[in-house]
Structure formats: structure tokens, C-alpha cells
Nucleic acid binder design. Structure first.
Length: 490
RNA sequence: UGCCAGGUGGUCCAGUGGCACGGACGUCCGGCUGUUACCCGGAGGACGAAGGUUCGACCCCUUCCCUGGCAGCCA
């Protein structure tokens, strides 16, 4: 257990009872006066030795508080210099006490002149320590997901991810939205959102069978019925929307699809706002404002990390985000999108899948639309009803629904949403058309029987947004411990 | 799930039907240096699994496992 002032002031208590534990971020960003006694606690990123001036060692230490690590100058006069300091390797944990000084070297404005370097934890086998100061492939780092947050890239991703979470909450809170904690375990099956993970306490080696047909008897299961992990909080949050007016969910969701792509996870996070007395246009306005707000927040608050992404991951990312914030999202009717794509085909564009009214847009189409035709996010609205979910509001033309997708260059669909069908008779018609069980939606239908109002909402894929912002190519590298088919390690 | 490409020191890559001749980075040892993707010298360290073909397989064939890319499902 750590002793001393740091117990009462575990983080960021610069100026209180020196020597005080300071975050690397505070030390480097002018929040601690040069000349102050400081203590930093963190992990060694690298060590370089010099014999000059009787011998000294440069140890860079990071603590996750910002992108940069701080340079610690340890002189040979330290009692444990020969025995410990020169044996430090990447990954060792240390507590450094000293003075914040202006750096004599180039490459950093300030550094710590160490009076004491306490080694808290050694790296037992430097040869096989998985994280070296050099570049690693992301594929490799996924195999050491417990150590990858110590790298530049994953530290930066974690901070951006956090920043984005907070920005989302702030965006909604500022606009009087109420955060609703919708359930993770659900009995809403047949939502049409694809395969779900079963939640059960039944003994899989000895399943209870119903009399007669031999089907599994879920009445003996924990909840007395079949249950699954949620694929969306939307249906539940609609209930709160029709009471609280402006609501949103933000939590994990689960899809048991066997999807092996750079933009799918079996467990991912989703933000789902839902607004009452609103139509599709209001919904699109909200989506656009939301994206712009959070992107702008990340640019402001995590410029250090974003600079790194622009330098090493995706040269265009900052430029792209600044354009997004400044521009107006293109809005296109689905039908116009099909027309534009058809015209592109006539102009020589080649697609694997033919373009025709009634089809769903393929990845190649979305990519062409956002990357070639428009060059910024596009909101495609009013899709054919046959390719969309039962709860989406049927338009007056009878063949389209008030659905929208926000497509972003590089990753495709980042937001999917719709105005919801608030008319019970029409909703029932859709449930019937799609062969769904009306009884299963009894409470959802109640919302249309008791004080129904037009309302709308969307789902923002959190990992896709982080990927879009950082330029990271795979959503597996923007979530701490990715869950994908055949992979639930860690 | 389909198609394609891969699995060789700790990491990233070369390479060959005949005992692993490899390189870079990291690691360890030594030298140099207010260093900073330092530099110089030296050292240790590897063929995904199971079958098959063959005198002999890391190499060819089959199956399996794993990884990546693209596609579908979607956020």
C-alpha cells in the first residue's frame, strides 16, 4: 500500500504538502512551477545512459495522464544508481522524487532532476516483455491486450475514448436529456436485429424438456422464459422518451453475428438518443449537432493525442474532423442516392452489386457516395420499407419509411436511426407483414395506445466513432478488450 | 459464413526438398554520448498442430487451429 501524502491526495495534488504527487500532464503543461519539488509515479517507457558528467541516466516515465512521457534525469550520485537505475527497462514501475527543472537538452521543455528513484515493480524478464519501445503491429498487440494500454497508441485511444464518452454525456446533459439505464438482459426477442446471445442458468448438459414436443422448457429457466443479451436499448428507451421527452441510453450491446470485419464487435457500446414530438428531420439535426459537438470536443481536449494520430496513424484525421465540424452534412433522399449512383455507373463507376431502387446500399455504394461524390458525412433518408425494421414510421408514399443512416468516409455507417411508427394501426400492420408476434410487443404497443406522440431516435456506434476520429482502422483496437467470434480472451 | 493471403528467434521480415548460413529492431554484456526512433562492437535466441508423399519435409499434399484483408449481417 502506498504511504504518505499520496494516500489522501492520490492524484493531482500539486502544491499540497510537498513533495506532492503530480501527474505527468500537470508537470509538462505548465500547471506546476519550474523549481517545484515533485513526485511522479508511473511506468518506464525507455532508458538511455550517458557517461558524461560522472554518469547519468535518462528515464522517460508515463502515467497515462497525457500523451507525452516525462524525462527523468537520474545522476550517478543516486544511492541505487548502479544497483537499480541503470537496470531499469521498459515497463518497470517507479516513484520518482525530485525537482521540476527546465531541460538542458532538446526535445522537451521541462524534466525532472531526480533526488530519488524508487523501483516499485521490476519487469521480471525484459527479453520477453511483450511491449518494446519500438513499433508493434496492432494484430500482435491484441494478443497482449492487458499490456497494450502502455503503448503510445493505446494510451491515446483510451484517452480519446474517455473524452468522447464525457463529451456525449455533456452534449445530452446540456440539452436536458435524461440518461436512461436500459436493461442488458432482455426478453425482447425477434427484433430483427440478428442473432442474440442467450442468457440462461439451465444446465446445458441436461436441459429440461417440455412435455410432448421435446422443446427446451424455458419456464424452468432463471427468468421463467427465454432471455438474451440486449441488441439495442431502443425499445425500452422509447418508453422513457414518452414520459421524459428527451432521453438517451449509453451502454454495451451484444450481437452474436459471425461478423469478421474491421467494424464489427460482438460486444460494443452504443449511444441511443430518443426525442419526443420530433420527426426525422429533427432527428437528423440532432445527429449532426451531436457528432459535431463531440468531434469538436476531442479536437479541443485531446490535441496531444490527435497530433499523434495525425503523425503516425492517419495523416488526414485532424483535417477531416475540422472539415466535419465546419461543414453541413449532406442530406440525400434514398431515391436520389440511387439516382446519383446510377448516374455514376453511367459515368464509368464500377460496382460489384447493381444499383436499383429497393436494394440496400452496399459498402461499396456507401463508400463511393461519401468518399467520391460528397467527401464528407452524408445523411441518407427515407429508405424502402422492405429493407427496414418494423418500428420505423411508414411515409405517406406507402413504400418508404422515415429511416436515416449517417455515413462517414472511411467507415461507412456510423449512425442508424428513424422516426418511430406512432400509429398503432400502422404499427400492427407492419408487425403482421413481417410475421412478428404481436403479443410479444404488448407493452411497446401500449405506448401507442396511451398518449402516443411522434418521436424519433438513432443509434451511434461508439467504437465506430472512435475509429473515425482517431483514424484507427479496426474497431478491435479502439475498445479495451475486444470480443469477436472465437475471441473472448482477457 | 464465403473468397483471398498468411503463420520462421521476444517483435517484424528474408530463405531453402538435405544438420536453420539470414537481416532489422528489442534483450543482455562492453564502448561513446545532456541522451531522446542515439551511435559502435560482441552475445544469446525460431520454422502453428496432426497426418501424408519422400531415403530425407520448415519447404510439396490433406485436414485442423490461428491471424489479416475483402464481402455479407449491422452500429
Amino acid at each position: 500500500m502506498v504511504q504518505g501524502p499520496s494516500r489522501e491526495h492520490p492524484l493531482g495534488d500539486a502544491g499540497v504538502n510537498p513533495p506532492a504527487h503530480v501527474l505527468v500532464a500537470d508537470a509538462l503543461h505548465g500547471r506546476v512551477a519550474v523549481g517545484s519539488p515533485v513526485v511522479v509515479k508511473g511506468w518506464v517507457r525507455s532508458r538511455r545512459d550517458s557517461k558524461a558528467g560522472g554518469g547519468l541516466s535518462f528515464v522517460t516515465v508515463h502515467d497515462g495522464s497525457c500523451f507525452d512521457a516525462i524525462q527523468v534525469v537520474a545522476r550517478a550520485s543516486l544511492a541505487n544508481f548502479e544497483s537499480e537505475v541503470v537496470r531499469l527497462t521498459t515497463g518497470c514501475s517507479v516513484i520518482v522524487s525530485g525537482t521540476l527543472v527546465e531541460s538542458k537538452g532538446k526535445g522537451q521543455a521541462t524534466e525532472i532532476q531526480a533526488d530519488d528513484v524508487e523501483v516499485v515493480g521490476w519487469v521480471s524478464d525484459p527479453e520477453t516483455y511483450p511491449v518494446t519501445p519500438k513499433q508493434h503491429s496492432f494484430e500482435y498487440l491484441r494478443e497482449v491486450a492487458h499490456l497494450r494500454p502502455r503503448t503510445n497508441t493505446f494510451g491515446a485511444v483510451a484517452r480519446v475514448r474517455h473524452c468522447l464518452s464525457m463529451a456525449l454525456h455533456r452534449f445530452f446533459d446540456d440539452r436536458s436529456f435524461c440518461w436512461i439505464h436500459t436493461p442488458i438482459i432482455t426478453a425482447n426477442d425477434a427484433e430483427g436485429a440478428g442473432a442474440m446471445f442467450r442468457v440462461s442458468t439451465l444446465d446445458v448438459a441436461n436441459l429440461p424438456r417440455a412435455q410432448g414436443n421435446g422443446a427446451v422448457d424455458f419456464s424452468q429457466d432463471f427468468f421463467g422464459r427465454e432471455t438474451h443479451l440486449t441488441v439495442s436499448g431502443q425499445l425500452n428507451v422509447e418508453a422513457y422518451c414518452l414520459a421524459m421527452s428527451r432521453v438517451y441510453t449509453f451502454g454495451p450491446t451484444f450481437r452474436a453475428e459471425n461478423s469478421n470485419t474491421a467494424r464489427h464487435l460482438a460486444e460494443f457500446w452504443m449511444v441511443e438518443p430518443e426525442i419526443a414530438f420530433a420527426d426525422l428531420s429533427d432527428n437528423a439535426d440532432l445527429a449532426e449537432a451531436c457528432l459535431k459537438y463531440v468531434v469538436s470536443a476531442v479536437l479541443d481536449e485531446r490535441s496531444d493525442d490527435m497530433r499523434f494520430f495525425a503523425e503516425r496513424i492517419d495523416p488526414g484525421c485532424i483535417d477531416r474532423l475540422e472539415k466535419l465540424v465546419a461543414s453541413t452534412f449532406e442530406r440525400m433522399d434514398y431515391s436520389d442516392t440511387v439516382t446519383a449512383l446510377s448516374r455514376a455507373v453511367e459515368g464509368g463507376a464500377r460496382f460489384e452489386f447493381p444499383v436499383s431502387w429497393g436494394m440496400d446500399l452496399q459498402s461499396e455504394h456507401e463508400r463511393y457516395l461519401t468518399e467520391q461524390l460528397v467527401g464528407r458525412p452524408v445523411v441518407v433518408m427515407n429508405y424502402p420499407k422492405d429493407i427496414k425494421a418494423f418500428y420505423m414510421r411508414v411515409n405517406d408514399d406507402g413504400r418508404t419509411v422515415a429511416a436515416m443512416d449517417v455515413l462517414a468516409p472511411g467507415i461507412g455507417e456510423i449512425i442508424g436511426g428513424s422516426q418511430r411508427e406512432e400509429r398503432l394501426d400502422v404499427l400492427d400492420g407492419r408487425i403482421g407483414e413481417l410475421g412478428l408476434d404481436r403479443e410479444a410487443y404488448w407493452w411497446y404497443r401500449d405506448l401507442r395506445r396511451y398518449g402516443t406522440v411522434p418521436h424519433a431516435g438513432f443509434g451511434l456506434g461508439f467504437e465506430r466513432t472512435v475509429a473515425y476520429i482517431t483514424g484507427m482502422a479496426n474497431v478491435r483496437d479502439v475498445i479495451p478488450f475486444p470480443r469477436t467470434p472465437r475471441n473472448a480472451d482477457f
